[in-house]
Amino acid sequence: MMITLRKLPLAVAVAAGVMSAQAMAVDFHGYARSGIGWTGSGGEQQCFQTTGAQSKYRLGNECETYAELKLGQEVWKEGDKSFYFDTNVAYSVAQQNDWEATDPAFREANVQGKNLIEWLPGSTIWAGKRFYQRHDVHMIDFYYWDISGPGAGLENIDVGFGKLSLAATRSSEAGGSSSFASNNIYDYTNETANDVFDVRLAQMEINPGGTLELGVDYGRANLRDNYRLVDGASKDGWLFTAEHTQSVLKGFNKFVVQYATDSMTSQGKGLSQGSGVAFDNEKFAYNINNNGHMLRILDHGAISMGDNWDMMYVGMYQDINWDNDNGTKWWTVGIRPMYKWTPIMSTVMEIGYDNVESQRTGDKNNQYKITLAQQWQAGDSIWSRPAIRVFATYAKWDEKWGYDYTGNADNNANFGKAVPADFNGGSFGRGDSDEWTFGAQMEIWW
């Protein structure tokens, strides 16, 4: 008995050590931004985005507190085989008060198993909700290839000249389909599951310092038995992507060409959309029709120009041509140079221009935006974070068209359509004006 009692403290210590080691193995990653800002004409900070554009130049032009908190852990490992559990909870508030209630979004919860298939060394099996191989332009917060959501897949299969990845994910639309009631009355209240099937071939070395990635995505509306879509709904579509990445000037340049059809055009990033119906009456549900095509040509990157200068840049042309004439032509160009006074202090400027032409009206909206920021960051790279910055932003815009969301679809035949700025004596778009804002912001990723 005495021997047992003497061994007990040692056993407890060993158990505590094991539990401590396991606790220390938890990975904590994430992203956050928050700050305070004012508008020159009075009131809180207002942000500037061109009507019809899918993004905006973000430096000194973000008006919310946003965070993603990721917890993950390698829960099992034997040799080169392992299982990893990953989670991500995100939230966004308007940064107007101390207490701002919000419903967090559970954006990731997945398990990734590496090297589980003997004859596919280096590959990963995964299932669950996941940010899946996302491609974006940081300076405009624009995701041009992103099929994230609940799904499953097999990735990084070594095929000799590259890595092959296969995945299936889902994005549902509210009110996407109906069941038959009586007297030809349909009640569009059932969600429609939109499935996306993704095939990618990446890391193909085609020139010194250059790699090529090719991808095909097929999206479709997956209806339940005895349900139907509204007439004209976009049932399926394709997205084709080619991306060349070149190492240059201690950074990279990415050149991207994408072509999409029908349900893959509205978001243009790989998620299927077009079966959703915002109104019970299918007579007024025309606005979900996105049959047509999209072409996107994009070049972006980040480079170092000597010891003291870094720069991000982007140039993009996007043409969404829809059968219902509600598409757009959008082109944007911008730069973000950074001058480093010390390894932790810099001055950053961002200059961006957007131009969006309405397919329906032929009119154009444009905006110039310039931001000057003094910044303190954890390192001497344009990617170094955390960063604390004080900024001043000036924007000038001239908008000739907007979307008509007055009333509702039952009493407005133009609901959701592009109209000229002065349509029917109204005021659509943001008109011709300018404004400036100033404030302070922190940004961090880890």
Rank of each mutant, 00 (worst) to 15 (best):
P9H: 09
A11V: 03
V14I: 02
M19L: 09
M19V: 01
S20F: 08
S20P: 03
S20Y: 01
A21P: 02
A23P: 05
H29D: 11
S34Y: 05
G37S: 06
W38C: 07
G43V: 02
G43D: 00
S55I: 10
K56N: 13
L59P: 01
C63S: 11
T65I: 15
W76L: 11
G79C: 11
D80E: 11
S82I: 12
D86E: 08
N88K: 07
V89A: 14
S92Y: 11
Q96H: 05
N97D: 14
N97H: 11
D103A: 12
P104T: 15
E108K: 07
V111M: 10
Q112H: 05
N115D: 11
W119L: 15
G122V: 13
R130L: 11
R134P: 09
V137L: 08
H138L: 00
M139I: 12
Y144F: 14
S148Y: 14
G151V: 15
L154Q: 14
F161C: 15
A167V: 04
A168V: 04
R170H: 04
E173K: 00
E173D: 11
A174S: 13
G175C: 11
G176D: 00
S177Y: 02
F180L: 04
I185N: 05
I185F: 15
E191D: 10
V196L: 05
R200L: 10
R200S: 14
A202T: 06
A202S: 15
I206S: 12
G215S: 00
G215R: 11
R220P: 03
R220C: 01
A221V: 02
R224P: 07
V230G: 05
D236A: 05
D236E: 09
E243D: 07
T245I: 01
Q246L: 12
F252Y: 03
K254T: 01
Q267R: 06
S272A: 06
G274D: 00
S275Y: 00
F279Y: 03
D280V: 02
E282K: 05
A285G: 15
A285S: 12
Y286C: 08
N287K: 10
I288V: 08
N290H: 10
N291H: 05
G292C: 05
I297S: 04
G301A: 00
D307Y: 08
D307N: 03
G315A: 04
W322R: 08
D325E: 02
G327S: 03
K329T: 00
V333I: 03
V333A: 07
G334S: 01
W341L: 06
T342M: 00
S346G: 00
T347N: 05
M349R: 12
I351N: 00
D354N: 02
S358F: 11
Q359L: 05
Q359K: 13
Q359H: 06
D363A: 11
K369E: 00
Q377R: 04
S384P: 15
R385C: 01
R385H: 03
A387D: 10
I388N: 01
V390F: 13
T393S: 10
Y394S: 09
A395S: 06
G402A: 11
G402D: 00
D410G: 15
N424I: 12
S427N: 09
R430S: 12
S433I: 08
E435V: 01
Q441K: 14
I444S: 15
